[in-house]
Structure formats: C-alpha cells, structure tokens
C-alpha cells in the first residue's frame, strides 16, 4: 500500500474522530476517555506481529512480548473500567 493512501486514510479518520468527539455529552467525557484509552490498546496487533516474526527467542521477541503484555493490560483493564463506569449511568436511566 502506498504511503499516500495510508496518509489519506489517516486524515479522514482524524476528521471522523473530531466530528464524533465534538458531540459527546459532558456527562460521558470520562467514559469516552476510558473507552478510547482501551481501544488504543489496538497497538497489540503490532506487538503480536513483531513477536511472531522474530527469529527465535531473541531480543526482538522479548521486547515484543512485553509490548504484548502492556497492550493487553491496557485493553482488558480499559474495557472493564469503562464497563463499570457505563453500568452506573445505565442503572440510573432505568429508574
């Protein structure tokens, strides 16, 4: 894929991000931060590829595995925290 293509994808995504975040109600700012924090753990894809393509158990492999560890921590911790927060908002709505 050409770099130019990737850059245009990036710019379009930035626009989408701005348009979406602009309209988030202030009460949900914390959950928005928490969810977006969790999905930024997507960098685990990079860590996984990096670990898988290492030549045996070398430095690249070890560093990548720690990358996997911290990204996974970010993902699981992030989604659980967001879920706990959002459940609070939902309960109140049903009442």
């Amino acid at each position: 894929m050409t770099t130019l293509f990737l850059i245009s994808i990036f710019v379009l995504s930035c626009l989408i991000g701005i348009l979406i975040a602009k309209d988030v109600t202030p009460a949900l700012h914390s959950p928005l931060m928490s969810v977006s924090n969790a999905i930024s753990g997507i960098v685990i894809i990079g860590a996984l590829s990096s670990a898988a393509y290492a030549n045996g158990f070398n430095t690249q492999e070890i560093i990548s595995l720690f990358g996997v560890f911290f990204a996974s921590l970010n993902i699981f911790g992030g989604f659980v925290i967001s879920w706990r927060m959002l459940r609070l908002f939902k309960k109140r709505k049903e009442k």
Binding site: A21, H29, L32, I39, S40
Partner: peptide, 18 residues
C-alpha cells in the same frame, strides 16, 4: 496496518477535542 492507523487517529483526535 489500517486498523492501527484509523483507531489511533480517532483516539488521538478525540483526546484533542476533549
């Protein structure tokens, strides 16, 4: 990797907007 690029950009810009 497009999923990394798109997701990172959305997280990045939403943080900026906030």
């Amino acid at each position: 990797n497009i999923v990394l690029i798109i997701t990172g950009a959305i997280v990045g810009t939403s943080g900026l907007v906030l």
